[in-house]
Amino acid sequence: MKKLKIFVDCHVFDTSFQGTRTYIQGLYLELIKDDTKHFVFAANDIENLKSVFGNQINISYSKYYFKNPLLRLLVEIPFLIKKHKAHFAHFQYRVAPIKLCNYIVTTHDVLFQDYPGYFPKFNRIQSHLTYKFSAKWSDIVFTVSEYSKERIQKHLNVKNITVMPNGVDMSFFKEYNKTEIQAQIEKEFGFSNYLLCVSRWEPRKNQQLLLKLFINLNLHHNHFLVFIGDTTFKNKEFQSLYLQAPEEVKKKIVFLQKVAFDTFQNIIRGAELSIYPSIAEGFGIPPLESIAAGTTAITSNATAMSDFDFLIDYSFDPRNEAEFERVLRKAIDEKAMPFDAFKKRIKQQYNWSLSAAIYNDTIKRFIDS
Rank of each mutant, 00 (worst) to 15 (best):
V12W: 02
D14F: 09
F17R: 05
F17W: 14
Q25V: 11
D35W: 02
K37L: 12
A42P: 01
D45Y: 04
N48R: 15
L49K: 01
S51M: 05
V52Q: 05
N58T: 06
I59E: 06
Y65W: 10
F79V: 07
K82V: 12
F88S: 02
H90R: 03
Q92H: 12
Y93K: 11
R94F: 15
I104N: 00
V105W: 06
V105M: 08
T107L: 15
T107F: 03
T107D: 02
T107W: 04
H108R: 10
D109I: 10
D109L: 12
D114A: 05
Y115L: 13
F119V: 02
P120N: 07
I125C: 07
Q126C: 08
Y131H: 12
A135S: 10
T143R: 05
Y147V: 07
I161W: 09
V163S: 04
V163E: 07
E175N: 04
E180A: 13
I185H: 07
I185W: 09
F191M: 09
Y194I: 07
V198R: 00
L211A: 00
L211Y: 03
N218Q: 14
L219M: 15
F224C: 04
V226I: 13
G229R: 05
T232S: 10
F238Q: 01
E247Q: 13
V249Q: 05
V249N: 03
K250M: 09
K252T: 08
L256G: 05
D262Q: 14
T263R: 12
I268N: 06
R269C: 11
G270E: 11
A271I: 11
E272S: 08
S274F: 13
G284Q: 06
P286C: 04
L288P: 05
S290N: 09
A293N: 05
A293W: 14
A297Q: 06
A297P: 04
I298G: 02
N301P: 04
A302H: 11
S306Q: 13
D307F: 14
F308G: 01
F310C: 07
D313H: 10
E321H: 01
L328G: 00
D333L: 14
E334A: 03
N351E: 09
W352H: 04
Y359R: 00
N360V: 04
S369R: 11
